[in-house]
């Protein structure tokens, strides 16, 4: 009896009438389909339109391969850098009080609020041939703009907030009691970080890293300004897609785009898993807190 009631938990009291429910749900599904599902599917349909062989050929073509390699290289450099910056910034902001704290928080958000193209331009103005440090750099034969270092710099800038933004609220909520407890028990700063702080933030950190990685691999605007689009040298996957598309090489463009789309799907799956894990942990905490009452 009770089971039968539990099978239909929807209460008449708190729901809208049937037509309204269908209408709202239908509208939501229509939007999701139109703006998310169909475009995503079309990427794969277009990429495979002329068969598997051409699809694979477009991916192993030397320029495409070098673009993929460069994209991976950029991610491999910029994500760890952001990981270190992000943890350090979040640690400082969440656990200490100091002058200029709110300024630092605003600065961390800057890459979110500035257009990526502007971010790219900043680096051109600093390191470009006519820029502030351009002459010195060319005298010493260091290439930043239109080379790999510029792409890495722009990517680091654009992905800067992801890890820090993810960690600050988490670390603020956790407070510094556990760190103090570790210290009283005789742990050094390093031991406290590795044994207490890091395990407590690992899921939030992973989440931030996943997002930062997705952005690092997918960034177009800022990278486009500083890269110079030299095929086989300074082209990342998003830039390569644009070039191919402009040359009417649709199979190639969509094939490369499908890699980015796949990356997005993998990121989403990883993100959902991490969210599910941390939500389950939070729920457990909450349930136990309730049990205490």
């Amino acid at each position: 009896m009770a089971g039968a009631i539990n099978n239909t938990p929807r209460s008449v009291v708190t729901t809208e009438s049937r037509p309204v429910r269908y209408l709202l749900t239908g509208l939501a599904l229509l939007f999701v389909g139109l703006f998310l599902v169909i475009p995503l599917l079309s990427v794969f349909v277009e990429a495979l339109r002329q068969g598997w062989k051409l699809y694979l050929a477009a991916l192993v073509e030397p320029d495409a391969l070098s673009a993929i390699k460069l994209t991976l290289l950029v991610a491999v450099i910029s994500v760890p850098l952001n990981l270190v910056f992000g943890v350090a910034a979040a640690w400082a902001i969440a656990k200490f009080e100091f002058r200029g704290k709110s300024l630092l928080i605003t600065l961390i958000d800057l890459p979110f609020s500035v257009s990526p193209v502007v971010a790219g331009l900043i680096y051109v103005l600093l390191f470009g041939a006519q820029g502030w440090w351009g002459p010195w750099l060319s005298d010493n034969d260091v290439k930043v703009i239109f080379a790999v270092p510029g792409i890495v710099l722009a990517t680091v800038f654009v992905t800067f907030p992801f890890v820090a933004r993810e960690l600050i609220p988490l670390m603020e909520a956790q407070g510094s009691d556990e760190e103090q407890a570790a210290m009283v028990l005789g742990a050094s700063g390093w031991q406290t970080f590795w044994r207490v702080t890091l395990p407590n933030i690992k899921w939030g950190l992973l989440y931030g890293v996943i997002l930062a990685n997705a952005r690092a691999m997918g960034e177009f605007g800022a990278v486009s300004v500083v890269s110079g689009h030299i095929r086989g040298l300074t082209n990342t996957v998003p830039l390569h897609v644009e070039i191919l598309y402009n040359e009417y090489n649709f199979v190639g463009a969509f094939a490369c785009a499908s890699i980015l789309a796949l990356l997005a799907l993998v990121t989403l799956a990883a993100k959902s898993y991490v969210e599910w894990r941390s939500a389950r942990l939070a729920l457990e905490d909450q349930r136990n807190a309730l049990n205490d009452q």
Binding site: E178, A181, M183, V184, L185, A187, R195, N200
Partner: peptide, 28 residues
């Protein structure tokens, strides 16, 4: 504080949430 050899019990206990009870006590 590390060298003072004091035992401190925090108001909200501050147990290490990712460690078992055994590891919490063994930490010091």
């Amino acid at each position: 504080v590390r060298e003072r050899q004091v035992g401190f019990v925090f108001q909200h206990y501050a147990l290490f949430r990712h460690m078992t009870v055994f590891e919490n006590v063994a930490f010091g």
